[in-house]
Structure formats: C-alpha cells, structure tokens
Amino acid sequence: MTLTKLLSHYRTLNLLSILLFIGLWQSLAFYLSDNSLPTPAMVAEVFWQETLSGQLPYHLGMTLLRLISSFVVAMLLGCAIGILLGGNKKLDAFFDNWLVIFLNIPALVTIILCYVWFGLVESAAILAVVINKLPNVVVTIREGTRALDKDLLEMTRCYRFSKLKTLRHVIWPQLHPFVMGATRSGLALIWKIILVVELLGRSNGMGYQLHLFFQLFDVAGILAYTIAFVAVIQLIELLILKPLDRKAGRWRR
C-alpha cells in the first residue's frame, strides 16, 4: 500500500496521531529531564503499580459511582423540569429567572455552600454536583420541547394517542438528540466538578487522590490517574453513547 492510501484509513490516522502525541511527550520529557514532566514510560509504570495495589481502581470507582448517581439524578430531574417548562409558557416565564440565577452561580460556591449547610457528607457532595448540572439539562431539554413538531402533536391528538404513547413514539424521538447533547456536555462538566467536590470534602476518589499527589509534587501519579480517567470517559462514549446514537439515527436518510 502506498503512503497516501494508508493515510486515508481513519484507523491508521488515529493511531498515528496518538503515536505522534506520545513521541512529542517523550522528546519533551527527555529534553527537560526534570521531575515535573516524567516520560510516558514512567507514567505507565506508576499506572501499573497503582492498578496492582488496587488504589487506582478504588478511587476511580468511587469517582465513577458519584458521577453516575449525580448524572442520573440530574438528567431525570432536568428532563422532567425541561419538558414541563418547554410545554408551559406561564411556568417558563415564572421560572426563567431562577434558571438564569442557577446557571450563573459558580460551581465552587455551590460546592462550598452544600458542605457548609449539610456537612461533609456524601449526599452533600452529590447534591452539589446535581445543582451544578441541573440548569444546563433543563435549558437544553426546554429548547427541545419548544422545538417539538406541532403538526405531529396535532396528529396524535386527532388519533387519540394516550399520554404514554405520545411520549414514547412522538416526543421522545424528537428530544433524543437534545438528551444526547445534554449527556455529552453533562459528562464533561460533571467529571470536572466532581474532582473539586472530592478535593474539598471527601476522603476518597480521584479528586482526593490528586490532592495528595499535588502535595507530594508527584506529577507521574497525577498523569497516570488522568489517563485512566480519560480512558474511562472514552470507553463510555464508544460503548454506550455511540451505539445509542446509531440506533436512534436508523430512520434518517
């Protein structure tokens, strides 16, 4: 195969870009030869040690557990509120200000306030993440609900679709892209916030662990944990979100 032909394969391109990244990293680390940037091999070594000792899976697991529970709560509540506001002009006008306020509270403030008010407990941590994520979901789903096809809704009324049937066959398929959008942006947002939540008030999880590494100036540890986390998020994207997208997009031309 010629080089151009090889390059035209996305898989090879992907591989090449990753190799280039590691190569750059390696040469930079070699050039600096300093503790502040360990080589990829050193990071891999730390990653392996931490995995064997069970430390990394434990902390990663705790963080993922928090991520999943706060994500589920935020999505369910957000979808319900979003559909309600999108479908009802008066409610929407009333609660619009609330949304703007919650959208603009800095994440750090909600986290600190939750810990101050409810103590350094798990539920306070989850609540802080949910409050940060919820307004985003509501706004996205509200947009989706406003954009629902009026013609199709009239059709369902005329043919007397039950509420459940309408939700499942008419509303949900139209909201699906919005829910996927909220999911993607949500995962990215939540895992950034969750580390701060753990750093400030939990004694396990990625955030806590990163804090320890920071105090020891252990950059290799920080990088090893980061890579593990990024890999997990990529897996979620590849194994759960992409297939869902494909399944929902079957009917498109």
């Binding site: 013609d151 009239e154 066959h169 009917w251």
Partner: peptide
Amino acid sequence: NPRLLPWR
C-alpha cells in the same frame, strides 16, 4: 401534509 412519524 402527510404527518408521518419519521422514526417509525
């Protein structure tokens, strides 16, 4: 207009 559900 036909008003069919495109995803069914």
